[in-house]
Simulated scan of single mutants.
Amino acid sequence: MGFFSKLKEKLTKTREGFVEKIESLVTGRKKIDEELYEELEEALIQSDVGINTALELVEELRRRVKERKVEDAAELKNILQEIITEVLMDDESRLELEKGKPNVIMVVGVNGVGKTTTIGKLAYQIKVGGRKVLLAAGDTFRAAAIDQLEIWSNRVGCDIIKHKENADPAAVVFDAIQAARARNIDVLIIDTAGRLHTKSNLMEELKKVYRVINREMPDAPHEVLLVLDATTGQNAISQAKLFGEAVGVTGIVLTKLDGTAKGGVIIGIKKELDVPVKLIGVGEQIEDLRPFKPGEFVEALFEK
């Protein structure tokens, strides 16, 4: 099965809760009226697009319907697809990895979003692409996190820098950066504790790690990837805002898109945060972490 077919299959729940709901609203409607626009707004909000984003999308839909003198309600689905594609196409952004120096990727996010698994899959992708990878076990608050990352390092076939449980995460990061230089590593991926985003002291710890990275390698981290769980819907956006304030997130990894009807949150993330979604997780397999391609995503979402 090609990736597009797989993506289409994995987005089934979101399509059922989002696109098919919109389809049912416009099919058989004789006229485009205020009631229809309100129902479309409600359908978008229920799909976890977010209230503000839903209002903006429907406002733009109204504008285009009026401008084009559209009278057939069935055409609204295609216009909405067009608007969503434009919103997300503005978001096409890849991981920034340069040649000739260690690239540092700091990975952040709360517990349970699939952060360590994402790091393992990302390390695999980068290694398959011919680059040398090193992992840093910066989540020292959970012994299981260190063990899990070590399992991934063995699976991928890359080195790992780790200290004991409850060690200073900044010390782990310091050692990892020295090792990356000494071993001519292309990409250093740093795991961090799954901090509860409401705990300010833990956010301060995260800022400290960031400062150590920047001090030891002044142009780093080159990427700060925030891992978000698509199944949490709008809560993912509030998490993104807090992490963004703490460490300046450069990109988002949206996981578990295959198990949720809340995939619409990807549109809200773009509209409200203006931080690019760089990778999406659509399954359990090691190959199921993929670069986010907006055009492909929207086509897979809207196509039956």
Rank of each mutant, 00 (worst) to 15 (best):
residue 2 G to C: 05
residue 5 S to A: 07
residue 5 S to N: 14
residue 9 E to G: 14
residue 9 E to C: 11
residue 10 K to T: 15
residue 12 T to Y: 11
residue 18 F to K: 00
residue 21 K to S: 12
residue 25 L to D: 00
residue 26 V to T: 13
residue 27 T to K: 03
residue 30 K to A: 14
residue 30 K to Q: 13
residue 32 I to L: 14
residue 35 E to L: 11
residue 44 L to C: 07
residue 54 A to Y: 05
residue 56 E to V: 03
residue 61 L to D: 11
residue 62 R to L: 10
residue 64 R to E: 08
residue 66 K to L: 09
residue 68 R to S: 09
residue 76 L to H: 04
residue 77 K to E: 07
residue 78 N to Q: 09
residue 81 Q to I: 07
residue 82 E to K: 03
residue 83 I to N: 13
residue 85 T to F: 10
residue 87 V to K: 02
residue 95 L to S: 02
residue 99 K to W: 06
residue 101 K to C: 04
residue 109 G to V: 10
residue 109 G to N: 11
residue 109 G to D: 08
residue 113 V to S: 02
residue 115 K to E: 10
residue 116 T to A: 00
residue 118 T to S: 15
residue 120 G to C: 04
residue 121 K to Q: 05
residue 121 K to S: 03
residue 122 L to R: 02
residue 124 Y to N: 11
residue 126 I to F: 01
residue 126 I to R: 00
residue 139 D to Y: 05
residue 149 L to D: 08
residue 153 S to W: 07
residue 154 N to T: 01
residue 156 V to M: 10
residue 156 V to R: 05
residue 157 G to I: 09
residue 160 I to Y: 01
residue 164 K to W: 01
residue 165 E to K: 14
residue 170 A to G: 12
residue 176 A to T: 10
residue 178 Q to V: 10
residue 183 R to F: 11
residue 183 R to V: 08
residue 187 V to Y: 01
residue 193 A to C: 11
residue 193 A to S: 15
residue 196 L to G: 15
residue 196 L to Q: 15
residue 197 H to N: 08
residue 201 N to F: 12
residue 205 E to T: 12
residue 206 L to C: 11
residue 211 R to F: 09
residue 216 E to R: 07
residue 219 D to N: 12
residue 220 A to S: 13
residue 222 H to C: 11
residue 222 H to V: 08
residue 222 H to G: 11
residue 224 V to I: 12
residue 224 V to K: 00
residue 226 L to Y: 05
residue 226 L to M: 09
residue 227 V to N: 02
residue 230 A to C: 11
residue 231 T to I: 11
residue 232 T to I: 15
residue 233 G to D: 02
residue 234 Q to M: 05
residue 236 A to K: 01
residue 239 Q to W: 05
residue 262 K to Y: 09
residue 276 P to A: 07
residue 276 P to W: 03
residue 277 V to N: 04
residue 279 L to N: 11
residue 280 I to V: 13
residue 282 V to C: 08
residue 285 Q to D: 14
residue 291 P to G: 09
residue 292 F to G: 10
residue 302 F to A: 01
residue 303 E to R: 10
